[in-house]
Design a protein around this nucleic acid. Structure first.
Lengths: 166, 166
DNA sequence: ACAAAACGGTTGCACCCACAACCATTTTGA
DNA sequence: TCAAAATGGTTGTGGGTGCAACCGTTTTGT
């Protein structure tokens, strides 16, 4: 099948020499995120027809309870238009309901409908199953370590962008 | 269901209880990838007008030398149509050139033009700079550890999808 | 008090993307 | 040998996405 196996990177050359793609974090993270998400995608897509964004909004709302669209944005680090449309779709399909904010009439407090709660629980089970399978192949220790480092990385990034700003 | 301060995750509840978004790897990876990529995006976008896909193709071609579109796909874990269009755009803009494969006339071997090489070197410098800044805030040890774990994770994922297949 | 700025959310638009259908070439296997 | 299957790559199409402009509401500064 494979002819020359491009997956073997050029022997991790010294980092001071030049740009090394296979150690470049944005590249590595994108690839890992893509592969991981693709692996779970069938769960919410096939049979439920959800978008990745919609699944994320569903998961966040299911997890945090009544929440506003803006807070979803900050939690997921996503564009507000993206979230807005996902919310619209989920409302349209009867999984989500909006309620006008009481103190602030600009906001709309989101919550799952009964249908949405059911779907969230179903997909939550799938997610747990996925997590279990992955952990079995990845080792619990490594996974914990990895999550800690991910958290550190985001902190470091936040620090970076706060320093040099824009 | 706490509704206040959504950024503080619910204290890492026991993993057996139910679906826990803030420990769900696809979610965490997507967020980290998004934040990291966004941070580097200005480098290739502003002033050079490259897409993220185009930048990736440029980087891979610059890194691996003469390479075929299919190999770029397997390296980056991307759709072939996405790569195809990025290649077209880069060829159009004079950064990339195609050469008909000699042994296999279906393939087209890609390589950087002089212009492409220059751009690759420029952006490679930016990438190095970015990496350096990030490493300063992230700690070299953590970064190395993190990369090792990322690699392990991809291996675990490959194993998973090979086992249960589809 | 009130105009200006800031903010939550929506939408128009151009663009990017995934998916599938497709073409040309190569490989397979009977 | 040659028809069927597989492969590298392109493209049409419907739909998702980012950006900026926008609306209505709230906050700020004077």
């Amino acid at each position: 099948m494979t002819k020359s196996d491009p997956k073997s990177s050029p022997a991790v050359s010294d980092p001071e020499a030049g740009f090394e793609l296979e150690t470049f974090l944005p590249f590595l993270l994108n690839r890992a995120a893509e592969v991981t998400s693709q692996a779970f995608q069938p769960a919410y897509r096939e049979g439920f027809g959800l978008t990745r964004s919609q699944w994320r909004v569903l998961a966040i709302t299911g997890h945090y309870g009544a929440i506003t669209a803006r807070d979803i944005c900050t939690i997921a680090h996503e564009e507000k238009s993206k979230i807005s449309r996902a919310v619209s779709a989920l409302t349209e399909s009867g999984h989500l309901q909006k309620a006008l904010g009481e103190t602030d009439k600009r906001t709309e407090v989101l919550s799952l409908t009964e249908k949405g709660t059911t779907l969230f629980e179903t997909l939550g089970q799938s997610a747990l199953q996925f997590d279990r399978t992955l952990r079995a192949a990845f080792t619990p220790e490594k996974e914990a370590q990895f999550r800690a480092l991910l958290s550190d990385l985001e902190a470091a990034l936040a620090e970076c962008s706060n320093q040099e700003d824009i």
